[in-house]
Design a protein around this nucleic acid. Structure first.
Lengths: 123, 123
DNA sequence: TCCCATGTTCAACGTTTTTTGAACTATTGA
DNA sequence: TCAATAGTTCAAAAAACGTTGAACATGGGA
């Protein structure tokens, strides 16, 4: 089991690969969920996505997301903690990630994304 | 030969399909070229893209671009004139097309896109 | 009218991608 | 030490995708 998964450098991140990665509904949902987690500056581990697909299928999508430079995986004990490569992406492709995320948010129902968790508000 | 190719309505345009369409280098190049043409508000016909692929392969990519709502085709005699669905896309996914296009422009070399034709400026 | 130019459609082919379950590795806690 | 937990890897099957050339449709000009 690779101790530290490979990640491309910032400069190696390619636009077509990023777009292709984001075009898959499962991966888009993963990225969307990571982006929400960003707000509370913590990370998520694989198990947090179990609603989206089976374990091995998720591992496949995680690998793609890492390989194309969309997210970073940090190994900690038996867990893998993941986060968006927000800064790298914003430098490389300014405005792209935000545009995708806000477009996804608009279509959250259609894309079957988790509702945005308004961390504090209760009705 | 279908007289008027089918195009989705604005509301039918889906984010994953759009991203998938843009993730193919040939289609990205087509969209990029259409965007440049936009500046002089004229349209392009199929033949204008002959540098990118063979005729039937281009027809395949044009069909995808139409089906996912990225471009519009107008039949005029023996020609098909095409243009970006700029307004529909901007309403549906604000900022997305511009972010993709400027990211593509940044990587024009890597993506083997035609250099932007600075219509006026000369150095 | 006949031919040419412009594009589309179709079928075939090979490649890539996605999905699945089973086997496996590594770490933690009892 | 042993079992449980968290993820990855592998191989096989299914599905989706991109490319090609040949055949086709349509409209315009000689």
């Amino acid at each position: 089991m690779s101790r530290t998964p490979l990640h491309p450098t910032r400069e190696q991140i390619e636009l077509p690969m990023v777009l292709d990665c984001l075009s898959d509904p499962i991966r888009l949902a993963i990225v969307y969920q990571l982006a929400q987690q960003e707000r509370v500056s913590s990370e998520l581990c694989c198990g947090d996505f179990s609603g989206l697909a089976g374990k091995s299928n998720l591992a496949y999508h995680f690998a793609k997301l890492r390989e194309c430079g969309l997210m970073l995986t940090r190994v900690a004990g038996t867990n893998r903690f993941m986060r968006l490569r927000r800064e790298d992406l914003d430098v490389r492709f300014p405005g792209l990630l935000d545009a995708v995320l806000s477009s996804a948010a608009k279509d959250a129902d259609r894309l079957q994304l988790l509702p945005e968790c308004e961390t504090v508000e209760v009705d």
